[in-house]
Structure formats: structure tokens, C-alpha cells
Design a protein around this nucleic acid. Sequence first.
DNA 1: AATTTGCGTAAGCAATTACTTACATATATA
DNA 2: TATATATGTAAGTAATTGCTTACGCAAATT
Lengths: 108, 108
Amino acid sequence: MRRDVFQAIADPTRREIINLVAFNPLNLNAIADKFDISRPAISQQIKILAECGLISIKKQGRERYCEASLQQLNEVSNWIEKYRQLWEEKFNKLDDLLNNMQNQPNKP
Amino acid sequence: MRRDVFQAIADPTRREIINLVAFNPLNLNAIADKFDISRPAISQQIKILAECGLISIKKQGRERYCEASLQQLNEVSNWIEKYRQLWEEKFNKLDDLLNNMQNQPNKP
DNA sequence: AATTTGCGTAAGCAATTACTTACATATATA
DNA sequence: TATATATGTAAGTAATTGCTTACGCAAATT
């Protein structure tokens, strides 16, 4: 039962749930209504999201309001940012080539 | 056989492979040597990474050099960045509270 | 008090995942 | 040419995933 943020956001349904509650909290049934799958299925996905800290659940009477708590996305963001310069460099390789040709214009 | 970038980076072994070849390309056996799992297992993971464009494979004789090609990570990055302001706001809520207290220091 | 509503959870199931071993193939080397 | 090397791929498997239906329970409503 691996349950890290990378895996949590791998599922499109879970990403969609995050998107739904990101800008306004919704209770569980309101979320489930937006999907074609059953309410228990949504309940299970929300449980996973809650377990890895991406949403927090606030009980109000018999309702459970889900709100996004996305600080954990920093873990993914940081991992990606390690490589950003690397992949953006590739766009500059033509530049490098041109520079080299200018520095050594008549190499035999 | 869903095969998107989100799912590709969900697996820790695949992330580790990306990390290995990110800064210097390696052939498949060199990659497999770094792991405890079998060479075919690594071969399959590399196939997945190649299929979603995160690594590119260059044949050199009988060897296959794997190099990172991480532009696709932008898809993940963009998805996360949609929410950054949202979650960073939460860090500022304490600030806001403190500011309010300063502005209205002796509210009855 | 009885019923409805909002939800959790268990059990079951098909599909997928991540491995394994065994074998095939192309290229390099002796 | 025979052998060693680097790799792909198929088949099998155990574990995991993502759903379903069925049921239970607490809070609200009647």
C-alpha cells in the first residue's frame, strides 16, 4: 500500500477531484455527482488523497467537506525542478552549435 | 495500457532511472547494474519511459544509450503550477492574521 | 419514533502492474 | 567461424488497483 504524492496524482480521477475542490470545498456527494463512477468509488479515492495529505476533510454535521491542501505537491514540483534547466538547455543546443562554429570558424 | 507522464513518474524505479540518465546517458546494462531487479525488468521500465517520451534511445552498435528527454515533464509542472498560488496562500494566512492584529491592535 | 440522508467499509472481481525466467536475435570479438 | 555480449520479448505470476454491490451507522428530517 504505497501511498506517495506521485502515485496519488497518477490517477486521472484523483486529479479531477483535486481540481474540483481546489477552488471551493465540496462535500463528498457533491463530488461524486460530477463523476460517472459510484459514490463509494469516489469515497475510496478521497480516502487516498486524504491519506497522503492532498485534501483535508472537515466534518460538518453528517457532511464531510473536502478541501484541497496541496502543499505536498511541492515534493513533485521539487523533483521536476531538478531537471528543468536540463531540458530547457536542449532548446539552446542549436545556439551552442552556432557559437562553436563562430569560435572555430576554419577548423581543418 | 494508459501511458501518460503522470503515471510514468509514479513509479520510484522509473524516477530513479530518469535520475540516473538525466545528467549522463547510459546504456541499458549500465542502468540495470544499479538496481537489484533483473535486466529485463529494467528493459521494460525503459520501454515505458521511452513510449511516453521521457527518454530517448540511441543505438550504437549493439548498445542502446538512454538519455533523458524531459520536456514532457512540463505537462506535470503546468498542472501543479495551476495550484501553486493556492497552496502558497495558506502559508500566508498566519502572516495575514498577524498583519490584521497589527492594524487593529486593540480591538475590543 | 420512524425515515431519510450522507457517508464509510467490506467483499468480490477484472484489469493492470511489476516483476521473474527462458529464450531469441543482432553485433562484436576471439 | 565460433563465441561472447547487449539487448528485446514472451509467458507466467503475485500483488495492486479501481471499480462494483451490499450493508451499516450516525445525523438530520418528518
